[in-house]
């Protein structure tokens, strides 16, 4: 982490640094949400304040139900991060296992597995997710699962490629000839080389997962009210875009800034982990 920050500083990647800052801010908000605002504040209906304009008590105004927009944004960050983080984590691990095994062993079973992955990947991810949620019913858990399952094939394919080539490297062959077993080869000699890939793809997938999660919530397939979720907040207040724009713009901007920050950090990470690209300086 420190090394990454120093790298960004030294090579003058200010945008990526900004991204790190923004993500840290969102993380802080998400983790410490209960310290700033109670769950009550984010969910209690108070029609007296419906669509209130920004004020000292309600820094970003109130939504249609008279709930504080700031409180909902902060708790919404928690939901978004939780869903995105968990789903990417699950997908990453599943992708590593499938991709690693299918790359390391080449037989009929792994062939069929990879073709199945190809089949899933041929559908747009959001469609796969919608299909899964239709079966599971809307909610946070099924949203997380749906995004995870729909992104497993991406990871599996991505990780299988390097494994295919890595296992033929001389040092792996050498280790094998010294009598190392499959497990040792895979975990000691092959997998560690995937770290950079995991980190970069993880951060990019995180941005994608946030977008898909809010997209699905926009369609009403995410967490159900009163749970605040950015996409659902946009969906519900979108008819007020012309009359009281702040209720639509606030979650929209939050989403935009967060996804942008994730992408900027992803770019920085890519440069950091790929020594050949690091010489090119700022962007």
């Amino acid at each position: 982490m420190i090394a990454f920050l120093r790298f960004l500083l030294l090579t003058g990647r200010w945008f990526a640094l900004l991204g790190v800052g923004v993500i840290a801010l969102f993380l802080l908000a998400a983790v410490c949400a209960p310290l700033f605002f109670s769950w009550e504040e984010a969910t209690r209906v108070n029609l007296g304040d419906a669509l209130a304009a920004p004020s000292a008590a309600l820094p970003l105004g109130a939504d249609e139900m008279g709930r504080s927009m700031v409180a909902r944004l902060v708790w919404g960050a928690r939901v978004s991060l939780l869903v995105a983080g968990l789903s990417v984590g699950v997908a990453l691990i599943a992708g590593l296992v499938i991709g690693g095994l299918c790359g390391f062993y080449e037989n009929r079973l792994t062939f069929v597995t990879m073709r199945a992955m190809d089949a899933i990947i041929s559908f747009p991810r959001i469609l796969v997710a919608i299909m899964l949620i239709t079966i599971l019913g809307p909610g946070i858990v099924s949203l997380t699962l749906a995004i995870a399952i729909s992104s497993v094939p991406v990871f599996a394919r991505l990780f299988r490629g390097p494994v295919l080539s890595l296992k033929k490297r001389d040092y792996v062959v050498a280790a094998r000839s010294l009598g190392a077993g499959d497990g040792r080869l895979l975990f000691r000699h092959v997998m560690p080389n995937l770290t950079a890939l995991i980190v970069v793809q993880g951060s990019i997938s995180l941005a994608e997962a946030v977008l898909i999660a809010s997209g699905l919530s926009f369609l009403g397939l995410g967490p159900q009210p009163p749970v605040p979720e950015w996409g659902a907040m946009i969906a519900q207040s979108r008819s007020h875009l012309m009359s009281t724009p702040h209720v639509v713009l606030a979650p929209g901007i939050a989403l935009f800034v967060f996804v942008l920050a994730l992408n900027l950090v992803g770019d920085g990470l890519r440069d950091f982990s790929d020594p050949r690209a690091s010489g090119t300086g700022g962007r």
Binding site: R44, V45, P226
Partner: peptide, 29 residues
């Protein structure tokens, strides 16, 4: 959601009122 005038919003408000008198609720639009 969208069948009657502001149906989901009104339902959410009702959810708020039920929570306010101490009932636990689960919502689905």
């Amino acid at each position: 959601s969208g069948r009657y005038l502001k149906d989901q919003q009104v339902a959410e408000a009702v959810q708020g009122y039920l929570n306010a008198i101490g009932l636990q609720t689960e919502f689905r639009a």
